[in-house]
Amino acid sequence: MTIENYFILSAILFCIGMAVVITRKNAIVVLMGVELILNAANVNFVAISRLDNVQIEGQFFSLFVIVVAAAEAAVALAIILKVYKYYNTTNLNEINQLKG
């Protein structure tokens, strides 16, 4: 399998994740789109690490991306819970005040 196919798969996943972030109104579904984008980046890293079998730097980088994604998801969901407690909605169009 040539490396272009991995890149194309990653591009497709990235664009779908981007479309989810742009179109959805629910904050949790937007978070799902962000996870899709991070996964697309990981596919690229793993594909690049295939070129060099001795130094598997791409795999190290994708491991750290996964760690940061986990931390990001936990904090983002805590913020969403707090926002829901205040506004009683997770619809991003209705959350339009800064001072709470």
Binding site: M1, V43, V46, R50, N53, Q59, I66
Partner: peptide, 9 residues
């Protein structure tokens, strides 16, 4: 990932 040889990832 498995097909790309990154089993641990």
């Amino acid at each position: 990932y498995v097909l790309a040889g990154a089993e641990f990832v």
